[in-house]
């Protein structure tokens, strides 16, 4: 049913984006381990279908909000990887001029607010953006990423309720990767699914295979169209898994090797390859070509970032106020 909605060209584009997300994260990981970039990082390897499926369903004027794990969201949204890499390298050419870093990457002009690293903090911002879209009669929606950890924040309840009573054009997207840092979601939530909570707000809720990029795309498209046509928000739960630890310093001892291995068999990228190699339109040659071009794009980004100037120390003082 699914492929009929998407042209092969579009599917290949989504595939390349998933590769770009994954290889961006892998490259960042190795640069970080080499000590070439400061700070900490929260990586999303394994969640590419979620990032790409969601962003593929958005229009240019739509607004995305993200979390402390924003790299793949930003890549999928189409923010140039040069600007993202430069931000991670704390350079003035970064998308936030070096003031954001890993946890705040984004560029509102390109449809993604600087990521919000307070758990649940982006939820009201996306909803407020949706209020402005509705008020200004723009045909846009806000899409709001948050993790399973965020659904137990009070701000989730307050905001989803308001979005619901006002029929705001926002899609709430919970990337349920099963753990809030080290805490398993089923130890902090009595209901079986996050999407079950939607009924408490009188909005549609669905749990989706978050490692299937086409399913994600279709679900977000459907919820997005509903929101665009004034019928209000929806809560989508994308079931996925992060292959990396919570942050760079986390070896992930709270997860069994078996569980990790099981999820690796559901790797969104290899699943895509297996499926479409079988269907015949994806070939090894295309895969190799995609990988090579992504590799080149990342090489260019790293070179750009490393050769970019650092901000002046005293630029710390600017941008506190607009006037």
């Amino acid at each position: 049913m699914t492929s009929s909605l998407l042209t092969k060209e579009r599917l290949l584009g989504m595939y390349r984006k998933m590769l770009l997300c994954r290889m961006f994260e892998d490259r960042v990981n190795s640069l970080f381990l080499q000590g070439r970039m400061p700070g900490t990082i929260h990586q999303a390897q394994g969640q590419e279908a979620s990032a790409v499926g969601v962003c593929e369903a958005l229009s240019p004027g739509d607004m995305l909000t993200s979390t402390h794990r924003p790299h793949e969201h930003a890549v999928a949204r189409g923010i140039p990887v040069k600007a993202l890499m430069a931000e991670l390298f704390a350079k003035s050419t970064g998308c936030c001029h070096g003031k954001g870093g890993s946890m705040h990457m984004g560029d509102a002009e390109l449809g993604m607010l600087p990521a919000i690293a307070i758990v649940g903090g982006g939820i009201p911002l996306a909803t407020g953006y949706a209020l402005s879209f509705k008020y200004l009669k723009k045909p846009n929606i806000a899409a709001c990423f948050f993790g399973d950890g965020a659904v137990n924040e009070g701000i989730f309840h307050e905001t989803v309720n308001m979005a619901a009573i006002w029929d705001l054009p926002v899609v709430f997207i919970c990337e349920n990767n099963k753990y809030g840092a080290s805490t398993p979601i089923d130890s902090v939530m009595k209901v079986k699914t996050v999407s079950a909570r939607a009924s408490a707000y009188g909005i549609p809720g669905r749990t989706i295979d978050g490692n299937d990029v086409v399913s994600v795309y279709e679900a977000v498209s459907e919820a997005g169209e509903r929101a665009r046509s004034g019928q209000g928000p929806a809560l989508l739960e994308l079931e996925t898994y992060r292959f990396a630890g919570h942050s760079r310093s986390d070896p992930g001892h709270y997860r069994s090797k078996q569980e990790v291995a099981e999820w690796k068999t559901k790797d969104p990228i290899s699943r895509f390859e297996t499926r479409y190699l079988a269907e015949g339109f994806l070939t090894r040659e295309i895969i190799d070509r995609c990988r090579a071009s992504v590799e080149q794009e990342l090489n260019d980004a790293v070179e750009f970032a490393e050769s970019s100037p650092s901000p002046l120390p005293e630029e710390c003082l600017a941008d506190v106020y607009a006037e």
């Binding site: 509102a108 939820i123 009201p124 911002l125 407020g128 953006y129 402005s132 806000a142 905001t159 308001m162």
Partner: peptide
Amino acid sequence: GIAVGAALG
């Protein structure tokens, strides 16, 4: 928070 988002919007 909605006011902040609406202001950004």
